[in-house]
Design a protein around this nucleic acid. Structure first.
Lengths: 208, 208
DNA sequence: TGTACATCAGTGAACGCGCGTTCACTGATGTAC
DNA sequence: TGTACATCAGTGAACGCGCGTTCACTGATGTAC
């Protein structure tokens, strides 16, 4: 970024960025340390100064993506403080739209590519923190009588599963027909949630 | 299968089976034509008599898996003819349990690995037929007042998404805590569906 | 401010590997007469 | 039943490739005094 010779100065991040780019362009099968180094204008051995091996780079990309997702959801939660129903709808949509606009990140986080995940504790922390975000919202909704009142955790998992499944099916282009494909994705999210919610979800003056 | 020299007799299927085995043992990154040929006790060039290239083998494995899933669901439907609620519960469970017991097949079908899917029309047909199975059940449920009465297709997609998401999260070991992991998976399926259904789902004298 | 030195972040050659695919070939099988 | 021949399903050598990783190295940077 700053120096034009020898020491790069920010190579670690540059390699992560390059990796994301490769994933977007060619998918996982096209991702190699050598290619990533090439894109960062650096010799093919240079990455080893920052990552112990290829898995470590993949884990770093995954962690970075998870962090982005987490922060996006956190912002949404704060933006709608005090309105749990709205929080539920908007965070669900944030999840699905994150997948749509960052397919590489979403896929690498959730495609079981990172082996031996326990070696990368920040990944696991983020995963649990993310679920906790949703769980808190669901508890608030139940407290307000918006959702049926059984185990909040099961309900949270039900919602997460639904949004995760929708995101996956969209990314894999498995939406079963054109009719469904033409429905705006946010409308699908709202319709799905409406199936589970007692009160009517109000029309929003869409924020994003 | 029959001859012990030169002509194999059933090599095409043997290669598909070998491919499934490799996927189960080492995942997609370990799958190569050469390895598959090795397992089938055949020279590394032999597969080219049956598949134009590596992609074609992958597509064949995927198609085979999809067919198994389709047939399993079809049997479940027929087994509970006349009882749409039961059909809904049991086919949902069939979907999730197929994923659990055939993770390689499930992943390869739904992981976007098959490129240029349009080259393999039977894959696309199976995909649409599968959704149609679910759609028919949902329509019956709505006719009986079991489900809310909006678009059957949207409801069907909601259910499919939910089960697909649950299956994916289980396979990727992303269930957020041990508490949830200890719940029998079928109980989760039932709980999820209960969120969307007006009537109580009866306890079944479990069939499988 | 200047110098000596440790540490850091890169280089480039080299290793061994398994892969996908092609090609000329050959052994086995099926069919027409 | 026997023979000629086309077709099919395999073989094994060869190609070129990109990869992950290691290693001895060197240029740049930071620090102690």
């Amino acid at each position: 970024m700053k120096k034009n010779s020898y020491h790069h100065g920010n190579l670690k991040n540059a390699l992560i960025e390059a990796g994301i780019q490769v994933l977007a362009d060619e998918g996982l099968k096209g991702l190699s340390l050598r290619k990533v180094a090439r894109i960062a204008n650096v010799s093919h051995a240079a990455p080893y100064a920052h990552f112990t091996d290829k898995q470590a780079l993949i884990a770093a990309i995954s962690t970075e993506g998870f962090r982005l997702l987490y922060e996006r959801i956190q912002q949404t939660i704060e933006h709608f403080t005090g309105d749990p129903l709205r929080q539920l709808v908007e965070t669900s949509w944030a999840y699905v739209s994150f997948a749509i606009s960052n397919p590489s990140h979403f896929k690498i986080i959730f495609s079981g590519i990172v082996e031996e995940e326990w070696k990368y504790p920040s990944l696991i922390e983020l995963s649990q923190a993310s679920f906790q975000q949703l769980n808190t919202i669901v508890e608030s909704c139940k407290a307000q009588g918006i959702l049926q009142s059984e185990s909040a955790e099961v309900s949270a998992l039900a919602i997460w599963s639904q949004m995760h499944g929708l995101a996956s099916l969209i990314l894999e282009r498995k939406l079963p027909n054109e009719q469904l494909e033409q429905i705006p994705k946010k409308a699908l999210v709202v319709a799905f949630l409406q199936h589970m919610i007692k009160v009517e979800i109000p029309h929003e003056n869409s924020v994003d």
